[in-house]
Amino acid sequence: MTDAWRPIAATLADEGRRLAWARIVLGAANRSPVQVSALTARAQREVRALERAGLVTVVDGAVEPADPFTPLLGHRPAASGIDRFVREGRIAVWPKRPGDRAALLAWAAERALPAGTTAPEAAVTERLAAITDDPATLRRDLVDARLLEREADGSAYRRP
Rank of each mutant, 00 (worst) to 15 (best):
G116R: 03
L104S: 02
R18K: 07
P68G: 07
H75P: 03
V25E: 05
D141Q: 14
L39R: 04
T2R: 13
D60R: 14
A9D: 11
R159N: 04
E88M: 09
M1H: 13
R140F: 09
A103I: 03
L26K: 11
A22S: 12
Y157D: 03
T117A: 10
L39A: 06
K96A: 14
I8T: 09
T70L: 11
L72Q: 10
T125F: 10
R150I: 08
T137K: 12
Q44F: 00
L104G: 00
L105F: 04
L12A: 08
P65E: 03
Q44A: 11
V143Y: 04
V93T: 13
L39G: 05
Y157L: 07
S155E: 11
A78H: 10
S80T: 15
R6S: 11
L128H: 07
L39C: 11
E110G: 15
P98H: 12
T2F: 04
A156N: 02
R48G: 01
D153M: 04
A122P: 05
V86G: 01
A79E: 10
V63N: 02
R42A: 15
I82S: 01
L113K: 09
A28V: 00
T137V: 11
P33D: 06
D67F: 08
A41D: 12
A9K: 12
L50H: 02
D3S: 11
A145C: 10
A156C: 05
R139T: 04
L128M: 09
G81T: 06
E110M: 05
R87K: 13
L26F: 13
A102S: 14
A62E: 14
T70E: 11
A43Y: 06
G27V: 06
P95T: 00
A49M: 02
W5I: 12
R87H: 13
R42D: 12
V93I: 14
L73K: 05
V25K: 02
G81W: 01
P77N: 07
R23N: 06
A53D: 01
P71T: 10
R90E: 01
A129L: 02
D83P: 06
A38C: 08
L73T: 05
P160Q: 08
P7L: 05
L50R: 03
A38P: 09
R146G: 00
A22C: 08
T11V: 09
L26R: 14
L50C: 06
E46T: 05
R17Y: 06
P120I: 09
T117C: 05
P68T: 03
G27L: 02
E151V: 01
A28D: 13
E151G: 07
D141T: 06
E149W: 05
D100W: 06
A108C: 04
L19E: 15
R146P: 06
V59M: 09
P33F: 05
P95R: 04
E51T: 07
A43M: 06
P120L: 03
E88P: 01
Y157Q: 08
A122Q: 13
P160Y: 07
T2M: 03
G116E: 04
R111F: 09
A112M: 08
E15I: 07
P77D: 11
S155W: 00
